[in-house]
Design a protein around this nucleic acid. Sequence first.
DNA 1: CTTTGTGCAAACGATTTGCAGGATG
DNA 2: CATCCTGCAAATCGTTTGCACAAAG
Lengths: 142, 142
Amino acid sequence: MSISSTDAIVDTLKAHGLRVTPQRFAVYANLLERTDHPTVEQLLSDLNQAGPVSSQATIYNSLQALREVGLVREVLLEEGVVRYDANVEQHHHFRCRQCGHIEDIPWNTFHELVESHLRPGLQPERYEVTVTGCCDRCSESQ
Amino acid sequence: MSISSTDAIVDTLKAHGLRVTPQRFAVYANLLERTDHPTVEQLLSDLNQAGPVSSQATIYNSLQALREVGLVREVLLEEGVVRYDANVEQHHHFRCRQCGHIEDIPWNTFHELVESHLRPGLQPERYEVTVTGCCDRCSESQ
DNA sequence: CTTTGTGCAAACGATTTGCAGGATG
DNA sequence: CATCCTGCAAATCGTTTGCACAAAG
């Protein structure tokens, strides 16, 4: 998984004539090892925790490059917050209203329903279910 | 429908100690009569089409007031685009990748599935299915 | 040595805010 | 006449861009 993922960035960037820079690699690796779809701000502080790795502008540039080659996508779950995700496979999201915890919901969880429930005429190509509610921990602590 | 809807703004704003100003009313009425969840920019040009009705700042203020009292909600379908919707009932969205056409999908279309398919522990309170694809017109003209 | 990328700082666009004047209760 | 709201203009925040220097092919 980690091998094929780092392969992915090298192969894919090269295939698009883009270089595999330390900054791009660091951004992608960080997205891969996190499950919480961080914001640019979170990426910035996380990457530069132990010494300077990348500037803010370069993180934006890197994310743009990674998105253009299809390694990364944006995730819109909250108003005014843009998150980034190295899982470009179709999947859905659960977001805890209390703690903000975000977790992925596998695509096949809702797989069968969209095709069968949409009105005729609309041709679905992609869909995402965004569920908001309470996660286990927050339900318990109430 | 239109009677109960305009009642809604008068009653709801007053119940929250807010005034029903021409600008707030115009914003809400415009959202009600549209089905396409406009952006602030679209609201601004639409409202001021035939003479000045509201400034940009006041549209933002009005939308904030209307959101606070629960008459309006934001809709996030595209990156970097914030839309507003006077339909605060739960519902889903279809967005045409080609022409940008947006249409509502009734909530009961997917009603039965979220409750039954989520993993135990997560307590759903609200969910939205965002479908992207091709609408009738765009499929035909291809 | 040519091309591509970084990082700073300035620019930008969408949204928010401060404030003086206007409308409302 | 006290309160709330509008509208302008300035401020703010996230993101993008221009440009000089650095790194990679």
